[in-house]
């Protein structure tokens, strides 16, 4: 009898869908070590630079997958700039990453976009799309909050409505505040909202 129960458990374990956690992310789950980000070309304050996760000193890193062409990214741009400003000097680093292969989403496009919008975060380009795949990034924008040990503590949307006036829940801010305070975020995973990311076959 005990054996039968055990094999049932085994079947249940196999039947769990490939999607981790609540089922919104196919590659990583809460508590996982954040996949490496290494030597990506990036733009910060109008200058071309290079970014690696291991070189970031801040206690919290917010990784957000972006694409200049995406209307949802445009809808969130002001909120992202405001977030970056509000958390400047609070041990939080915001790192945008584009893995899009559309021409305007590559580094020169990123430079123009940031100048045009007044973007204040670091914005990197992952030509290989490897970082996007490793994080299971399916949307733009798609947010990941990493703690001091670079474990993933929050995955998902910035808030609960693409329309700023309808926002009632500030998932990203709440998660970052919790992690900064050494607490577990109340909401650790939400469904990302925005354009789908197309990966090369």
């Amino acid at each position: 009898m005990r054996k039968a129960v055990l094999s049932l458990v085994a079947v249940a374990a196999i039947a769990v869908p490939a999607f981790a956690g609540k089922g919104y992310n196919s590659a990583v789950k809460i508590g996982d070590k954040a996949p490496e980000i290494s030597g990506l070309p990036a733009v910060y304050k109008g200058e071309t630079t290079s970014v690696s996760l291991k070189d970031i000193k801040e206690n919290v890193v917010v990784v957000v997958f972006l694409a200049n062409h995406c209307p949802a990214v445009g809808m969130y741009e002001d909120r992202l700039i405001e977030f970056t400003k509000d958390y400047e000097g609070k041990n939080v680093r915001v790192l945008g990453i584009s893995v899009s292969q559309q021409e305007g989403d590559k580094l020169p496009g990123i430079k123009d976009y940031m100048k045009d919008k007044g973007s204040n975060y670091i914005y990197a380009y992952d030509e290989s799309q490897a970082v996007g795949k490793a994080y299971g990034a399916s949307n733009t924008p798609h947010f990941f909050v990493l703690d001091k040990e670079r474990n993933i503590r929050y995955i998902g949307a910035m808030d609960n409505s693409p329309k700023e006036e309808k926002v009632t829940k500030h998932y990203l801010r709440d998660a970052v505040d919790a992690v900064l305070a050494g607490k577990t975020p109340e909401v650790e995973e939400t469904r990302p909202y925005g354009c789908g990311i197309s990966y090369a076959k």
Binding site: S26, A27, I197
Partner: peptide, 10 residues
Amino acid sequence: TMDDPKNQFT
């Protein structure tokens, strides 16, 4: 769906 970067449909 397009949700899994490693298994997107055409």
